[in-house]
Write a protein that binds this DNA or RNA. Structure first.
Lengths: 194, 194
DNA sequence: CAAGTAAACGAACGGTCGTGCTAATTTGAA
DNA sequence: TTCAAATTAGCACGACCGTTCGTTTACTTG
């Protein structure tokens, strides 16, 4: 890897941390330069616009997400176990970033702001729901879930629970959050169980 | 009502709309002044600091929330009906503000930012969960829900569903969102039904 | 009508934002 | 070891931020 790519990766790592705390709009080039001990202009040259910095930071987080959530879950045995593994992996994902899941932050920031960020975000969101639904489908195939299970509906509720957990743990920073989330997923699974 | 209070209310109405779209940090005094056709300084005099503007905007939204969500729900008959009414009222609340529920936006903005806003927000959040739990408790008393229902757990899941709906409808702006949310609350209610 | 208060204004401050330039430095291959 | 290319730094810009100030206009009260 060339030196350029090397520092760029370091920049994006830091940018991801900042974005998770203050959002992608709050993410500032000056501050990022300070944290990476670079000059504003030197850092800026890597991206040539703030929007590019934001987009590439988002893309950077996608790789992280796949590595820490999707892939580990897929190594669990097919069926209900994999669904639960996915949920656990997501709970762990919250700990990777200091400020919690960047997608939650980003989604709120850009839901009313048309542009490339919003488009990218919507795509990621779709893919995430699709991933959940796919894993649920295998659970149906395995006979763990009822045949009339609607995988997309399950994905929606699954996703909603992660959002609820995120907000609960972040704002009320309660240990209860984990127990609440676990109880919820238990009930969700039980409800669709064959 | 004095003229001062009068314009202040008008300012807060506008501020609430802006905050729902770009957040409380994105809410800018200059822009707010422009939208209300006032001078920056004239508007600023009403609040004397940006934090005060934010706090009072938040408080303003609390009144709106009580009027459009809590109160209407409480006029529904006790029991399951009231729980459903609460959910419907919340769905309607999303339409009151151009940018969707301000609390969702605010929660994400301030979960990592200690200060008066975060404190106020956490309090509102607690009260909201408490309101849900209380209504659930009456449903248990009425015999609609099972005796072993955990009202706080129910409140958590209820709240999570509103968050899921919010994100789904805002980012994927899908008509599906309403159907998904309705189906979810149906399943939730069915699950706790006696 | 006069006096006094409340409300709104315009101009300016120091700061930070994103973004151009140009110059210096570092890197890696010939 | 040389040299072009890639990378970083320095400096400046216009725009907007929250905030302060002194002043002017609009109301209320005696």
């Amino acid at each position: 890897m060339s030196k350029g790519q090397d520092t760029k990766t370091a920049i994006l790592d830091e940018a991801l941390q900042i974005a998770s705390q203050v959002g992608f709009e709050g993410l500032t080039i000056g501050q990022l330069a300070e944290r990476t001990e670079m000059s504003k202009s030197g850092l800026f040259a890597h991206f040539r616009s703030k929007e590019q910095l934001q987009l590439q930071t988002l893309e950077h987080s996608r790789r992280w997400f796949i590595d820490t959530v999707i892939r580990p879950a897929l190594s669990a045995p097919r069926g209900e176990a994999r669904v639960r593994a996915l949920f656990d992996a997501w709970l762990g994902w919250e700990d990777v970033l200091q400020g919690g899941c960047v997608y939650v932050t980003a989604a709120v920031e850009y839901d009313d702001r048309p542009g490339a960020m919003r488009d990218a975000l919507a795509k990621h969101q779709q893919e995430w729901l699709e991933s959940i639904a796919t894993i649920v489908r295998t659970a149906v195939d395995e006979g763990d879930f009822r045949d009339d299970t609607d995988p997309d509906q399950f994905a929606f509720e699954f996703h909603a629970l992660t959002l609820g957990f995120h907000q609960f743990v972040r704002l009320l920073d309660d240990d209860l959050a984990v127990r609440r989330a676990r109880a919820s997923i238990d009930r969700l699974v039980a409800c669709y169980h064959s």
